[in-house]
């Protein structure tokens, strides 16, 4: 990434989007449309640049970059594990608590395992993991990188011939993708186990063997493949959006909070859109 040309176009965009508030509704709609197009264009370009750097430079500066990746995995995964185990237990209680009450009324308690797979494995587990990683690590990303940008550290890296995308973004992207994937697995396992515990406490006539047989029956090979693809995509997109807003835009320190808010909103929207695509795959395959 080079500061010069990138900055020129980014400044031109920023000027266009931050000039006086539009006076007519049509002008407002027009500006929002162009804002959306510019953001989409910027994010796509940034994602492609990052992928390009990751592919072409995966062997360079390994003794610096790989420890940085480990650190990011630790930050986005391992350090969040206690909170995620608590949340997975809570999720299991919530889903099973509601499901047991309703399934018992309609005499469909044998569908408990299927519901757990449908709700926890396919939807809530990945989304919960992505949103929490966004909240805990994604926001920190924008602030860290935004400060780095605003204080001129990015120029310092470029002056040293160090590619900021390689040094600052690539480790975060890999770390968050792996982190969201790993945490989703833990959330799902925790929720499924705590779900049975809750059912047991509610005197549901369901033996552990039957419960896990229901789970195994409801799961298919496709679930594992799509779960991995979805969580990696969530982690990737959250990292790209947060790094883009922190790093790829000319920022003053005062702009960092606004950039953080924008990054969170766009990450949530992007995750929901990706989730929608996966729902279509689930329904069509």
């Amino acid at each position: 990434m080079q500061t010069g040309n990138g900055t020129a176009s980014a400044i031109a965009r920023a000027r266009f989007l931050t000039t006086a508030t539009p006076r007519t509704f049509t002008a407002y709609i027009g500006r929002q449309f162009f804002r959306f197009i510019f953001t989409l264009q910027g994010l796509t370009a940034f994602a492609l640049i990052t992928l390009g750097v990751m592919l072409t430079r995966w062997r360079s500066a390994r003794r610096l970059i790989w420890p940085a990746i480990s650190e990011q995995i630790n930050k986005s995964g391992l350090k969040l594990l206690p909170m995620f185990l608590f949340l997975s237990a809570a999720l299991g209680f919530l889903v099973i608590g509601q499901a047991v009450a309703w399934l018992t009324r309609v005499g469909a308690i044998n569908y408990l395992g299927s519901i757990m797979v449908l709700v926890v494995v396919r939807e809530l587990g990945p989304l919960l993991a992505a949103f929490l990683v966004l909240a805990r690590i994604g926001t920190a990303n924008v602030i860290e990188l935004g400060t780095t940008r605003a204080t001129g550290e990015v120029e310092a890296l470029e002056a040293l011939g160090i590619d900021p995308v390689h040094y600052l973004v690539a480790p975060r992207v890999i770390g968050m993708a792996v982190g969201v994937f790993a945490l989703t697995v833990y959330v799902i396992i925790g929720a499924l186990l705590s779900g049975y515990l809750w059912a047991f406490l509610q005197d549901v006539p369901l033996r552990p063997g039957d419960y896990f047989a229901q789970l195994a029956g409801a799961l298919s090979g496709l679930d594992f493949v799509l779960l991995a693809a979805k969580t990696l995509a969530f982690g990737f997109i959250v990292a790209i959006v947060t790094c883009y807003h922190g790093l790829a835009q000319p920022l003053r320190l005062a702009d960092v909070p606004r950039a953080t808010i924008r990054a969170v909103a766009q990450s949530v929207i992007a995750c929901v859109l990706i989730d929608t695509c996966f729902i279509i795959v689930y329904l069509t395959v």
Binding site: A159, L160, G161
Partner: peptide, 28 residues
């Protein structure tokens, strides 16, 4: 090489890590 007026050191690294950074990056 370039020396900035405020040093422009990377805040997440120590002084020693900052100085060694270009060597670590370019010479692995």
């Amino acid at each position: 090489g370039m020396v900035f007026e405020s040093g422009q050191l990377l805040n997440h690294l120590t002084v020693g890590q900052n100085i060694a950074l270009p060597l670590r990056y370019h010479h692995d």
